[in-house]
């Protein structure tokens, strides 16, 4: 049961500081939403937490349980339980989806000192996960995200989440470009993992996703800072009034 703890986090791209000091605590078992206008630093926060190159952390800390996230390689963070659902899932031509999922799962298991799954054990697991997500089985045979529709790519992210079973999911605008059916599948995928050991950071521009993944807390991110936090009703308020008023109040 690990807590995500972010204190005074500052990060830059090149010379430009994007995050000006983020303070955020997500206890185990809770789902927090981060909402904010475009350009507020939402995606930067998700990339800094997951360890993408090109972002320089200039201050603050981010820990998950005892682990110092910022000191770890992306693959170590994944093994520690972190999962970033990409806003734009990447296509991997020449890499089969089944192979990709099995290599990922076994890499994580190996790092954790758990036994790896053979092809038969893996297929059984993958088929069960696909069935529960109403995904056609041929998705396993295709190359990763190649020729997938926007909705299929997001479902594939959810499939990965179902198989890798993270304890901390960061959803980076997973709802963008999704129709309502796909949105429900994504939400079901996240809700299926909810429990005392699972926490999530749901980054979104719109309130819509939060109808399906009901958050425990909502934070508003603007200009690289969290300017307001509240319960689920804060999302409804934003939906009704827009960001302008809250941003103006905070300024």
């Amino acid at each position: 049961m690990s807590t995500l703890r972010i204190e005074g986090l500052k990060a830059s791209i090149g010379d430009k500081e994007i995050l000006h000091g983020i303070d955020l605590v997500v206890p185990a078992g809770e789902v927090h939403a981060i909402m904010g206008p475009n350009g507020s630093g939402k995606s930067t926060l998700s990339y800094v937490l997951s360890g993408r190159d090109g972002y320089e952390v200039t201050g603050g800390i981010a820990t998950y349980g005892d682990a110092d996230l910022l000191a770890m390689d992306p693959e170590q963070r994944a093994a520690a339980g972190l999962f970033l659902a990409f806003q734009y899932p990447v296509e991997l031509p020449g890499v089969g989806n089944a192979n990709f999922l099995r290599v990922a799962l076994n890499s994580i298991r190996r790092t954790r000192g758990e036994p790896e799954l053979d092809a038969v054990q893996f297929l059984k697991l993958a088929r069960a996960a696909m069935k529960s997500l109403s995904m056609p089985e041929d998705m396993l045979k295709r190359q990763v995200n190649v020729g997938f529709s926007g909705g299929e790519k997001k479902r594939n992210e959810v499939l990965q989440m179902a198989i890798l079973k993270p304890t901390l999911a960061i959803l980076d605008e997973t709802d963008s470009g999704l129709d309502i059916d796909a949105l429900k599948i994504v939400a079901d995928g996240v809700n299926a993992l909810r429990g005392p050991d699972f926490s999530a950071l749901v980054i979104t521009h719109y309130q819509r996703l939060l109808d399906y993944i009901v958050p425990d807390r909502v934070h508003v991110l603007a200009h690289g800072r969290i300017i307001r936090s509240g319960g689920p009703e804060l999302a409804l308020e934003l939906e009704a009034n827009g960001y302008a008023q809250i941003v103006a109040e905070a300024a």
Binding site: G51, E75, S107
Partner: peptide
């Protein structure tokens, strides 16, 4: 990065992308 974010170590990720290039 996508591969590493899914837990695949850097060397293995590089090998998978090379294999994909030669696929």
């Amino acid at each position: 990065f996508y591969l590493r974010a899914r837990g695949v170590p850097a060397d293995l990720a590089r090998m998978m992308l090379v294999r994909a290039f030669l696929a």
